[in-house]
Design a protein around this nucleic acid. Sequence first.
DNA 1: CCTTATGCCTGAATGC
DNA 2: TGCATTCAGGCATAAG
Length: 273
Amino acid sequence: MPELPEVETIRRTLVGHVAGRTIETLEVRWPGALLGWQDSEFTDIVQGQMIEGIGRRGKYLLIALKQGWTLIAHMRMTGKLLYYAQPEPAEKHTHVVFRFDQGELHFNDVRKFGRILAVPTDEQMLIPSLARLGPEPLEAGFTPTVLYQRLAGKKRPIKAALLDQDVVAGLGNIYTDEALFLARLNPSRAAQSLNEKEIQVLHGAIVTVLQAGIEAQGTSFRDYRDANGEKGAFQEALQVYGRANEPCQVCGRPLTKSRLSGRTTVFCPECQH
DNA sequence: CCTTATGCCTGAATGC
DNA sequence: TGCATTCAGGCATAAG
């Protein structure tokens, strides 16, 4: 499921193809994928506009259009943005097709959870879910001190806090479990119970797993593909996610699967305290 | 402040 | 084999 490293990889694999391209036509095959406007209005907004660049905030992809509009895309679980240099028939579950003066972009989502929103660029920050987002974990503003402050006083399990996009932007179930393993922290620990040293280690672990995820071009556990339709490789490096009952890479004892804050959670009860 | 439940979805995996 | 159930989960929202 696209988390920060996957969305960043989509951004990187897409920008070279579409920056400077003009959206000539929009084909809306399932209007439910579009938020904020009727599909005819959406079409009027984007047709004829040139893509200036693509940014990212947390798990949101921000596609900046020339005439002051931005497309905000969220893949949720199974959303994909697939670029084709040549015209390509829409595959099953393709909900929106952007056709450029050269090439086309397909928004495809089996589960139909993903959404694309069009908003005037200068009103982006009025979108509550974007406005509330916590710090970007790979930018300079994300320091151990900032993380400490953001977790202070929180009684919720550290895992629940890290999954909360308002605490830190971009972590999902995969990278949260991996970061907690790397930091040797039990996912059930109350967030406020972590001391400064533990927070410092956790901060380093978050940065490390996210950077490693990006370097591996994401985790293709099931559905994830980049804009070229390519899989990532980080699934091969996962230490705990998807490895319930397998031996811990550190101590050899079986990894435990439980349910925490409604999410499947895998961790090593021996190594993670 | 926190939790759990629900809805949104389809396909793969599992159960009988 | 086949039919039914469970599970995967990000996020908004509601309720306790």
